[in-house]
Structure formats: structure tokens, C-alpha cells
Simulated assay, not measured.
Amino acid sequence: MAETIGEAVPVPSPEPRRERARTGLRICYVLPVYNEAEGIRGFHRALLAATGTRPEFDYEFIYVNDGSADRSLVILRELAIADPRVRVLDFARNFGHQIAITAGLDYAEGDAVIVMDTDLQDPPEVSLELIDAWRGGAEIVSARRRSRQDTRFKRLTAHTYYRLLHTWAEVDIPTDTGDFRLFDRRAAEELRGFRERSRFIRGMVASMGFQHTEVLFDRDERAAGETKYPLQQMVRLAADGVTGFSTAPLKLITRVGFVSLALAAIGIMYAVAMRLLWPSITVSGWTMLMVVMLFLGGVQMLSLGVIGSYIGRIYHEVQQRPLYIVRREIRHDQD
């Protein structure tokens, strides 16, 4: 068909077609679950809605049931039956959040792997921003909290802990960043090689290197249920982070020892001076003796506790027990 001279012929833009074209890339989601029966269906619907806006990728959803005591496994089985993209790893018992992430990474086979919790505090639509950053060249993309809907106590303790860890750790661990992140296939393969028992994955990721970037997001409140990281679990995770990636506590023992020695020297000089210069007013009492004994005893017990934490990590490592035990794997094509 001949074109009219001087008349512009509109050419359709190819951009929408490229956005919808299949890339052949697979995005694998690793989703640890522990007693999330109240909110798991809502999370899955939100995840499907988010990924449905990017049909150019193939998706796989690996739910890791970390020994849930509620109906989480029943619901996950129903999701797997209804959707061939869903796989469920059912642990023989509760092994912990960090181990559940590890198992999901071991089974993931995507070109990129996204780790996120299933309580909707990590918005599924943010995972699409992680994918965009990965497509832009990043090998690890972390979701960094710009704000969080938690109690004042939790915000304060988290803020303090992240900054202390950033100062003490021997690797550069980003602040305000949890386990919500994307790994390129190469980075995920390298992370699988980290097999220590007391795991602090965000520290492991920081120690790996690779080309890393961050995406800021606002963390929401839990959609349902209660937090699976109470104060005791948070303290344990914090201890794993400090002892796993820093020798600062051991160095602190040395500094405390020098301070104690200096105070003891001052006390000795004071006692000798009083005895020589003012013997008549020197009163032999037990108060000073008890103060010194209790102080030094407290320092010694604290020091032994810190050393014991490091020795305990060594003990767990030399046992060489499996990190986790998968009782069964549930797929769409299984009964």
C-alpha cells in the first residue's frame, strides 16, 4: 500500500509487546511458614495478584512448613493441589526461621530467588521492585525498611541492635534490613555453601560480596496471627549475629580485664597509703572486700558466658548433624 507523500504514518510502539513477551526466566519465591493458618490464604492471593501483573516471568512458590502446630500444612496442601507452581516442604519438626529459609534456597531452581515472610508485613508488590533492580544488573537486592508498623519498644531495640551490629561486625551488614531480598542464581548457589548451624543469613549475605543494591519500602502490620519472633527468639537471633560475625565480645573481655586491673591497682595503692599514712583511722571492714569480690566475680562470670557462647557454636558445628529434615515434599501432581 503506497504512502501519501507528506503524511506521517503512525507506527505502533513495540514497548507494550516487549513487556508482555515471555522472557524464559523463572522467579522462585522461598516462603517460610510457621503457624500462619489465619493469614496464609490471604498472603497467597496477594502474591498471585502481584505476580499476575508481570506475566512475562515463570514463577515457582516454595512454601516451607517449619513444623507448624496449626492447620498451616492442610492449607498449604490445598494450595499445592490447586496450583502446579506451588511446592511445599514439610519439616519433621520446627527447625527455626533461618533454617527454613536455608531449605527453601536448597530446593530453589530459579534464575532468581526471592525470600520473604508470609505475614504480609513484606508486601508482595515490593518483590516486583526487587525483580526490576535485578534485571537492572544487581546480583543481590535487599528490601530495606523505610518505616515499620511495630511497637515503640521493638522499633527502639531493632534500631539499636542493627547499629551496634553494623559497628561490631567484621563485615558490612546493612542496617534496617531483614531477610526479604532477591538472589541471582549465582549468588543463591554460593549461599548454599554456607552450612554453619547457628545461622544468621543476613550476615552471610553481607560476607559474600556480589553486586548489591537496596529497595526502600514501608513495612506493614501483620495481617493476622501473632509474631513468630518473640523477645526470646529475637535475643537468640541477635546473639547469633554478634557471635557469628564479630569477635568484639571477646575483645571486650580483654578491655574489661584491663579496666578491672587498673581499678584493682588504684584500690591497692589507696589501701597501702591509708595503712602507712593514717594507720590509726584505718578500719578493717568487710564492705570493701565484698564489693571487690562481687565485682571481680561478676566480670569473671560474664567473661565465661561470652567464651561459652563461642565454644557452644564450635560444639554444634563439630557435631555435623543435618541442618533440617524434610518429612515430605508436596507437589501438584502428588496425592
Score class of each variant (00 low, 15 high):
109 E>S: 12
283 V>Q: 14
236 R>L: 12
21 A>W: 04
251 K>I: 09
233 Q>C: 11
187 A>L: 07
122 D>C: 13
284 S>Y: 12
184 D>C: 14
11 V>E: 12
332 H>Q: 13
189 E>Q: 13
6 G>L: 07
197 R>E: 02
272 V>I: 07
17 R>E: 08
4 T>D: 14
200 F>W: 07
125 E>V: 10
286 W>I: 15
108 A>H: 06
288 M>Y: 13
279 P>G: 01
13 S>Q: 02
226 E>R: 15
128 L>N: 02
330 I>W: 05
106 D>P: 08
165 L>N: 03
334 Q>W: 14
325 I>A: 08
168 W>N: 08
89 L>K: 05
27 I>G: 01
178 G>V: 04
99 I>R: 05
230 P>F: 13
309 S>M: 12
20 R>E: 04
197 R>L: 00
72 S>W: 01
53 T>L: 11
60 E>T: 14
126 V>L: 06
261 L>R: 08
73 L>E: 00
88 V>Q: 05
150 D>R: 07
17 R>T: 08
193 G>H: 10
27 I>E: 04
284 S>Q: 13
91 F>T: 01
139 E>C: 02
219 R>M: 14
57 F>P: 00
176 D>A: 15
91 F>G: 03
227 T>C: 09
13 S>L: 04
247 T>G: 09
308 G>N: 12
255 R>D: 12
66 D>N: 07
222 R>K: 12
283 V>H: 15
59 Y>C: 06
146 R>D: 11
198 S>G: 08
219 R>C: 14
158 A>R: 07
73 L>S: 01
117 D>V: 08
262 A>P: 07
28 C>A: 15
171 V>E: 05
91 F>E: 00
56 E>M: 15
279 P>V: 05
48 L>R: 06
227 T>I: 09
295 F>W: 11
5 I>M: 12
112 A>I: 03
192 R>D: 03
133 A>P: 01
61 F>E: 02
16 P>G: 06
20 R>P: 02
103 A>C: 00
322 P>A: 08
11 V>W: 10
204 M>R: 13
6 G>R: 02
306 V>L: 13
220 D>K: 15
231 L>M: 15
206 A>L: 04
216 L>K: 12
269 M>H: 10
195 R>C: 09
77 R>I: 07
89 L>Y: 03
45 R>C: 08
147 S>K: 01
